[in-house]
């Protein structure tokens, strides 16, 4: 993977490394013109971030001495393809008192790992499940 070798000198990618940038549908940045948009050749989907871009930004963040930001970008790369309703559903489940027990969160982690290959995100939710159990956050709130 190219992104492993990225450093702060490759940043910003749009300026320094446009060769590395591709949209979801494989377009290059220079193809995202107003004319193309008017012609219907650029859709909202083309203006979304990609898992690759997030991994590249994660590498840059690590190179800049920001490991936690890099890890967040790494988790985000895994969520790019997760549908909005699934994301909002898991967010809701992570709020206090929503999950009835540890199993609900472990199911969510399993879903992320199995369906979306979101390994780091899944581990993060499993960690939450442990903490919620320990701190009694599964109790029903009114």
């Amino acid at each position: 993977m190219t992104d492993k070798h990225l450093t702060t000198t490759d940043y910003p990618l749009a300026e320094k490394r446009p060769d590395l940038v591709r949209t979801r549908s494989g377009k290059m940045l220079e193809h995202l013109t107003l004319e193309a948009l008017e012609a219907g050749a650029v859709a909202l989907e083309d203006l979304r971030i990609t898992p690759e871009a997030l991994r590249q930004q994660a590498a840059i963040a690590r190179a800049a001495g920001r490991p936690t930001l890099g890890r967040n970008f790494g988790r985000a790369a895994e969520l790019v393809d997760v549908p909005q309703d699934v994301i909002l559903g898991i967010y809701e489940l992570l709020r206090p008192g929503r999950a009835k027990g540890k199993a609900d969160l472990l199911d969510a982690a399993h879903l992320l790992r199995r369906t979306y290959k979101a390994e780091q995100m899944a581990s993060f939710i499993e960690e939450a499940a442990e903490v919620y159990e320990r701190r009694g956050l599964f109790s029903k709130r009114f």
Binding site: I49, N72, I87, I90, L94, P96, M121, L137
Partner: peptide, 26 residues
């Protein structure tokens, strides 16, 4: 504080997840 966090209807993990969700949407 933990109680303020819960009263705000969130936890560090739910807020971290939401932060990651924003990044995943660019």
């Amino acid at each position: 504080t933990e109680r303020a966090f819960i009263d705000g209807d969130d936890t560090p993990w739910s807020k971290a997840f939401l932060s990651t969700a924003y990044a995943s949407r660019g």
